[in-house]
């Protein structure tokens, strides 16, 4: 019992990021608004970053900067990776939003169900034309 308790304390950081991750995915899947989907995607990614950073934490360690005063550092490698990943994430967001803007111009809406309805109408028109 005690063991389970301590282990759950030891993993709370993971659990928190898992919660955030799943809500991110939930937004992507359940929401019809395309911008909302991208926000969800972003949430998902940021929570993954948290997972990574918390993996790198060492109890008693400090930020990985050699100042001479500390000898225990948190693991800097995840930090490096996440720096890259943040940039990649923003790049994705930018492309995604640009696509949303184009979709708005082309369809006049950014709601998924309305777009699907428009496409369906178009397909039926094509089918009749043949």
């Amino acid at each position: 019992m005690v063991n389970a308790f301590t282990s759950s304390i030891g993993h709370f950081n993971y659990w928190a990021s898992v919660l955030l991750m799943t809500s991110g995915i939930y937004i992507v899947l359940s929401r019809g608004n395309l911008i909302k989907k991208i926000i969800g995607l972003n949430l998902f990614q940021v929570s993954v970053f948290m997972l990574f950073i918390s993996m790198g934490k060492v109890t008693g360690g400090t930020a990985p900067i050699l100042t001479g005063r500390h000898e225990i550092f948190s693991n800097p490698l995840p930090h490096v990776l996440i720096l890259t990943a943040i940039v990649v994430g923003v790049a994705t967001t930018a492309i995604g939003l640009a696509l949303v803007v184009r979709i708005k111009y082309a369809y006049g809406t950014i709601e998924e169900d309305e777009i699907l309805a428009l496409d369906l109408a178009r397909e039926q028109m094509d089918a009749r034309a043949q």
């Binding site: 911008i35 926000i39 972003n42 940021v46 970053f49 950073i53 918390s54 790198g56 934490k57 060492v58 360690g61 400090t62 930020a63 990985p64 900067i65 550092f73 948190s74 995840p78 930090h79 996440i82 720096l83 943040i86 940039v87 994430g89 923003v90 967001t93 930018a94 939003l97 640009a98 949303v100 803007v101 708005k104 950014i110």
Partner: peptide, 30 residues
């Protein structure tokens, strides 16, 4: 969690640039 560099980048990029991107996209789409 001792990741100062990451924090800095996240604040600048995630909170800053991304928000600007979102706002401009919203202004264009409603």
């Amino acid at each position: 969690m001792d990741a100062v560099d990451v924090a800095f980048t996240e604040a600048a990029v995630g909170a800053g640039i991304a928000t600007v991107l979102y706002l401009s996209a919203i202004s264009l789409t409603g």
